[in-house]
Amino acid sequence: MRTMLRHCLLAEALGTAVLLVFGTGAAVVNEQTQALGHGGVAAAFGLVVLVLIQGLGHVSGAHVNPAVTVGFWAAGRFPGGRVLPYVAAQVVGAVVGSGLVRLLATPGSTLGATLPAHGAAQAFGVELFLSFWLMLVILRVTSSFYEQGLLVGLTISATVALEALVGGPLSGASMNPARSLAPALVSGHLEAFWVYLVAPVAGMLLAVVTDRLLELREPPQPPAA
Rank of each mutant, 00 (worst) to 15 (best):
W194H: 03
P219F: 09
N176H: 05
A207E: 10
G108T: 13
V137G: 03
A184Q: 05
T159S: 15
Y146L: 05
T159P: 01
A199R: 06
V126A: 01
Q221Y: 02
A192F: 02
Y146R: 04
P183W: 11
W133V: 14
V141S: 07
L150K: 01
S171M: 01
P200W: 14
T159H: 03
V137M: 13
A113W: 00
G149K: 02
M175N: 07
M135Q: 12
F145E: 07
G203F: 12
V141P: 03
F193P: 00
S157V: 12
G203K: 09
L185N: 08
L165D: 09
G108I: 15
G153L: 05
W133S: 06
G153A: 15
S131M: 14
L214P: 00
L214A: 08
G153S: 15
V160P: 04
P107H: 10
G108N: 11
G112P: 06
R217Q: 15
P169C: 03
G203N: 13
E215W: 04
G112A: 10
A158C: 10
L181F: 09
L151R: 13
L214E: 06
D211L: 02
R179V: 10
S174W: 05
P169G: 05
P107T: 13
S144E: 09
I156G: 09
Y196K: 02
L128Q: 10
L151S: 10
V209C: 02
A105M: 03
A182K: 12
L130I: 15
G172T: 02
P177V: 11
F145G: 02
A224L: 13
E127M: 09
G125I: 07
L136Y: 02
V160T: 11
A158F: 09
V195F: 04
V201A: 10
A182D: 14
T106A: 14
G188C: 10
S187F: 05
S131I: 13
L185E: 14
P200D: 13
V195K: 07
S143P: 00
L139W: 02
A184W: 00
D211Q: 12
Y146V: 07
Q148V: 03
P219N: 09
T106Q: 14
L197Y: 07
L130S: 11
S144N: 01
L128I: 12
Q122I: 13
A123P: 00
G167Y: 00
A184S: 12
F145R: 03
S174C: 09
E218L: 15
A184H: 01
A121T: 15
S109D: 13
A192M: 03
L130H: 00
Y146Q: 02
A121V: 15
H189R: 11
H189L: 04
